[in-house]
Design a protein around this nucleic acid. Sequence first.
DNA 1: GATGCCGGGGT
DNA 2: ACCCCGGCATC
Length: 438
Amino acid sequence: MHVNFTLNGAPEGQKMEGGCLSPEAVEEQRLADGKRLSRDPDTRSVSLLEQKRKVVSSSIDVPHARRSEEEVDMDKVTAAMVLTSLSTSPLVRSPPVKVSEALSGSWKDNGSAGPFTPSSNSSSGGYWSWSAPSDQSNPSTPSPPLSADSFKPFRVPSLGGVGPGPAGPEDPSLDEQDGSSLLFDEPIPRKRKNSMKVMFKCLWKNCGKVLSTAAGIQRHIRTIHLGRNCDSDCSDGEEDFYYTEIKLNTDSVAEGLSSLSPVSPSVLSPPPPPPSPLPPLGQLPDSHRPQQPPDTKEPHAGGTTPLSRSAPSALYLIHTDHAYQATAPVSIPSSGSNLAGSACTSFTPTNSSSFSISWQSPPVTFTGNTVSPSKSQGFGEQRSQTIAVLSSPPRATTALSRKVRGEGKKCRKVYGMENRDMWCTACRWKKACQRFTD
DNA sequence: GATGCCGGGGT
DNA sequence: ACCCCGGCATC
């Protein structure tokens, strides 16, 4: 989408707007240079290169400006997750959940408590309200993911010069990889791009402010809540305790909203039940709470009505993605032709979209079938255990749908091995015999 | 072990 | 699309 946009070369100014990034000085300088650029052929080609680079890195989710150490750490984590999940659908943005955990616990558990908590709970309350209440014009006021993506590349050319500039420390390979592919105009079929965004939510009582940068939120807290006017250098770090990080996958969010929204209520109702409105654990090591103990719930309570409901959906979607890949192919046919499987009985109630089916089915069929996988055992697929488990129920379907050995004689029996050339082709190919069908 | 056939790889 | 084969389930 915006790839084209950038490629078509929108006026420089626009792009600058999109990226409200840090090096404002550089920005200004560039603006000033802009006039020259438009005339000078050399610099022009340079700008072309830049544009390409923009496109390149915009296809990858790169956490933007980082200003604090924590943020850097977060970036690392994010990058790691992105890397690990790159091989599959980029949608996959599974939080740091260990496979074993995913296996042992039920889905619900994973969704509601345990390793998931940091991102799912705390965030759910607020991060949809990032367009919400307070807005002192902040330089780092939440900007749509697009711009976040698009402005990042800017740093590269401006900071590192033209060449294969030093990409972000955490994702050099990615950037380069994409860069080359794009520069060479290789039509590598990339999967959907990643777009993970890290936001920072103010946990202060009655304030759900969400900003896109740690610095921003820190400043917000410092000035608004702590009543300090001094710069960040005189801060004692107390602000850290009043905000939490929120990771959100804009892609899955978008999808979750668009494709799932009609069904989402039903889909979501099962998982959310974690009745205890868990307070945001945040990333803070000891989970310091703001000093308004009884009101801890308030911050998210603010945004916890309809929107926050959908927030988990994104997260679940994230976590499910593998499951989606594994189950979807099965669940779709199940609603179509191959209803032979008995396992499908659990599906019957839902005639709706295949997505909801694939999502809901696991918890249902799951418990019973996983243990008796006469089939899933045999299938011994080498996918991750999670997938194996998740997909086992559907596999049972395939197992049942597998042709029971035919009663009648087959080519092999009839003609024997020595007359193999007389077999039907299917038999020759070890496929289901076409000549002597049952 | 023989047989039937699915899933998948190679061309 | 054709061809082949590994491997599993069943006989």
